[in-house]
């Protein structure tokens, strides 16, 4: 196996283990910290796919900002710090069956449709051939082809900030 495969399976194992802990942990703060592990390992998978700008954004926005928001949310809602058995429904087995059924259908469809086709773009040649990094290509296309969606997202973020302040403010 080449190093890329080794690291793919290493990070995939980290993602799956930590994601299961996020949804099964009895401690809210532990769940948030396992979410950090999931997000960091997903960023590593982006690097494997030669999307280093998205990986950097993932770390800055998700781990830097969203996790802090979650920790604030946990503390402001005075969640029980420590073990809490009341975080999961009594009908969790039904939810697990639903999720497994969904994975069965999706997994069958994916294996049936895509077989095991190699991703045709070799990462190292691509980084050289595009004459610049993935970051340069992303910024070029964000400010040309995707300019209107980009501006719409800016307005959406502004609206979300104003909305969050209006909702959470004590009046």
């Amino acid at each position: 196996m080449v190093a890329q495969s080794v690291f793919f399976y290493l990070f995939a194992a980290i993602i799956l283990f930590s994601a299961v802990r996020v949804v099964t942990s009895n401690n809210v703060v532990h769940a948030a910290l396992y979410l950090v592990a999931v997000l960091a390992a997903v960023a590593a998978e982006y690097v494997l796919l030669a999307a280093e700008f998205v990986a950097a954004t993932q770390i800055l926005v998700y781990i830097g900002a969203i996790i802090v928001l979650f920790l604030f949310g946990i503390m402001l809602t005075r969640a029980k710090l420590g073990s809490d058995q009341d975080l999961t429904h009594s009908h969790w087995a039904l939810s697990a069956a639903t999720a497994l059924l969904m994975f069965g259908v999706m997994g069958y469809a994916l294996v049936d449709q895509f077989h095991w086709t190699a991703t045709p773009m070799p990462a190292d040649t691509r980084l050289v051939s595009v004459a610049g990094s993935n970051s340069a290509t992303v910024s070029d296309s964000v400010f040309t082809a995707y300019l209107v969606p980009f501006e719409v997202v800016s307005v959406l973020l502004l609206a979300a900030v104003v909305g969050a302040i209006v909702l959470a403010r004590k009046d």
């Binding site: 196996m1 080449v2 890329q4 495969s5 793919f8 995939a12 998978e45 494997l48 796919l49 030669a50 994916l110 294996v111 895509f114 077989h115 095991w116 086709t117 190699a118 991703t119 773009m121 070799p122 990462a123």
Partner: peptide
């Protein structure tokens, strides 16, 4: 990336 498959990620 010759070694990585699309289906792995999917």
């Amino acid at each position: 990336m010759d070694d990585l498959f699309l289906n792995q990620f999917l």
